[in-house]
Design a protein around this nucleic acid. Sequence first.
DNA 1: GTCTATAGCCCGATAGAC
DNA 2: GTCTATCGGGCTATAGAC
Lengths: 194, 194
Amino acid sequence: MKTRKIDPQAKMDRVVEIARRLFVEKGYHNVSIPQIVKASGVSTGAIYHHFSNKESLASYIHEQTLGEFNQLLSARLVGTSSVYQRLRAFAQLVLDIAENDSVMMEYMLFMKHTEFMSESHPICFSEPFRWVQETIREGMEKGELKQGDVMVAGASFTGVVLRVIEVYLAGVLEVSLQEAAEETIANAWSAIKA
Amino acid sequence: MKTRKIDPQAKMDRVVEIARRLFVEKGYHNVSIPQIVKASGVSTGAIYHHFSNKESLASYIHEQTLGEFNQLLSARLVGTSSVYQRLRAFAQLVLDIAENDSVMMEYMLFMKHTEFMSESHPICFSEPFRWVQETIREGMEKGELKQGDVMVAGASFTGVVLRVIEVYLAGVLEVSLQEAAEETIANAWSAIKA
DNA sequence: GTCTATAGCCCGATAGAC
DNA sequence: GTCTATCGGGCTATAGAC
């Protein structure tokens, strides 16, 4: 005998998923609670029962998205050894996300968390990107990468990949991201290799 | 005998300048007309006399900024001949703007014009960036650049430069943009050269 | 836990004196 | 052209029934 009652967690997951999509599409301040209510089918009262206010809903979405990316990256890194392999795994991951979960990618690229969170840095400068810096520092020490400023090299590598993704998400890329992936990764590597 | 009356144009220029800074800092929807009134010292009535609404003020700022960038780029291109020289001039220009007029650079990088304009593309995919594509196409034909997708190559080159600027604007770069410029341009060129 | 209804606030835009 | 004062609307967040 299964209960007909819908899992409250599932309801909030739905709210979170839809809110993230709306935030990405229209921007935090262009999305009202009534709009989330209408799109999700969950009432104002229920939403405010789980989140103290609109800001805390946004913060929850932020942390959840960041956590998911960290997990995905960790999973991709098992079995990699060389600097090239690891940077390639990173690039491949963001390209895959861009293709398979464009809402997540757009959130990470464009969402201005400062609009609803007082502190903290953009997602693009958080843990995973600091991991890129460290990997590049290692590559420089090994002589596999051009000597130079680690920040500049890190920005160069990620810049190539993220910008190709931006162009893809803008709908301007004439080939599929799949097809462009090899060339993109090659360019990113060329930018920093010794 | 000089009139004491302040030039109305100068007043509106001030409104435009301050509004752009506020929009960049806080985002279009976080800036209210009363805030612009307070920051500029110009009254609501005066603003609405010159601009039919908040949106049209934002549109004016958008076009003005885009136009200024186009002019600056044209000026930098006189006397350049090779593909390398022209791409270098482009990169140097955006780096200079980032250093000397960070509000303009942040506007071009981060402003979501879609929040106040129904159509049109992000500034980063407009005329000057299409000019980059054409220049790269020429470089490929001459054999100076790696053969490949023109869009991907264009995104790779601009991606390196713009991402270094983002890192700089985020205050995370340990060296000055001046010092980082040569390395950045070298990396951007390495990403696409034959 | 979830709903409906609404209080209270602040914004964009207007009116009308000067 | 520029000002002050204010209206109407839509928003966030709460209250209270179920």
